[in-house]
Design a protein around this nucleic acid. Structure first.
Lengths: 224, 224
DNA sequence: CCAAAAGTGTTACGATTACACCCATGT
DNA sequence: ACATGGGTGTAATCGTAACACTTTTGG
């Protein structure tokens, strides 16, 4: 015999338990030859004196991805960013005020294209080196960052989703340094070039980057 | 100037929008030398005449994983199953009655250890061959199954998480067949054995499986 | 002109693939 | 006894990793 009340609770109806949902976004950027993550201090709420990921509440008329777009725009002004869902976090006590479940996303942006401005409700905003993250982040955001970084690493193995992190035209040493930053290891120059060229995704622009010794060629992603 | 109302809505407080949450579970099993998935027909609710994944509503005092355990136990009696989170689904109209977000999990079980019984609230329950899934599943469960199967395939590449799908002692041809079913391709017998033995995770029990021609050796996962 | 960084090929190694016969068992 | 499936090794190929010098440019 199964308890009838436990079965009733399985079913979604108008009396079902409901819960607030947020999205938190791990935005990675590549600044000063280092992979960074975007953190904010918020003007209101519980964790006003803690750095945390941009994040905010889901509304009734939007998907989680919509919500991520909205939230990031409201807190940073960033628009037309590509997101990938990472996972959901549901510890009962993860939010100090009430039960809140969060779904995390990651995004890759070029900081040069997206200057940091203080939107209202945001007290501070800054890029943090991945190994210099404050150790008193709000909520479970340290764990979310760890998971998102791992996700990014794993995605790098297969595809080359790094486009968003670099300017339109970039040099191969810049791309290699980015890979090394994401993966946290050093790569052989010649083998790296071989691999990238084999992928057949870059186009030599014919231009050289000036102001850099050696005069490296500038590449861009192929059309089509 | 940012609109103040959009910012207010970001913050989680006592007036925040709340929404029902469910977990749906893709339970894979290995029956009659085929990889299968467990589907149910429910006695109540919107989709009574559709097959669907076991799933149910999150309560206030449980994590998503807790919920998955509870739901699967209530609908099948299965206990002590290992779950992995796959992803969240949040289309606004994915549930016909009201807004419901679901987080999917996958699990691997041995059907022999978990005979199918009809628990109350369940009208039918059965293992379905992955390529013979009814085409009118409830909700977005077809998509969830597709994603979960992909997740399983990808996990197989690295680790050997297949333990739960086989009895304690099994033969190498059985293991190979399982791999072939999950991956959907044929593997070379000798190369497969080489790979598995290199992993150094199996222990030869010294016994032979009887009732099978050729007299195959039985293996078990190593301790420690 | 010197220092610093970019660019370029080849070889060695390990991993993966392809492939065919004998042996053990159940019927 | 025979048919069915289990078990075994080697050679060829491919992908990956190791490695040093020349060229270009800025200072």
């Amino acid at each position: 015999m199964t308890k009838p009340e436990s079965l009733a609770s399985l079913q979604v109806d108008h009396n079902s338990y409901e819960c607030s949902i947020t999205t938190d976004i791990a935005v990675f950027g590549y600044v000063e030859n280092r992979l960074k993550i975007l953190l904010t201090k918020r003007a209101v709420g519980k964790y006003t004196d803690h750095w945390m990921l941009p994040g905010g509440a889901l509304q009734s008329n939007e998907t989680l991805k919509d919500c991520a777009h909205k939230v990031l725009f409201a807190l940073t002004g960033f628009q037309e960013i590509h997101f990938e869902q990472v996972r959901a976090y549901s510890d009962v006590d993860r939010h100090p005020m009430k039960r809140v479940i969060t779904v995390s996303f990651y995004a890759l942006v070029q900081p040069e294209k997206h200057p940091l401005i203080l939107k209202s409700g945001v007290e501070e905003i800054a890029w943090f080196d991945l190994d210099k993250i404050p150790n008193n982040l709000g909520f479970d955001h340290a764990e979310i960052i760890k998971d998102s970084h791992l996700f990014l690493k794993n995605n790098l193995k297969d595809r080359l989703i790094v486009g968003e992190l670099l300017p339109e035209k970039f040099t191969l040493p810049e791309l290699q340094n980015l890979y090394e930053n994401i993966l946290g290891l050093e790569l052989d120059k010649r083998n790296f070039r071989k691999r990238i060229f084999q992928m057949d995704i870059l186009e030599n622009t014919g231009e050289k980057k000036i102001g850099v010794k050696g005069g490296p060629m500038l590449y861009a992603y192929k059309e089509a």
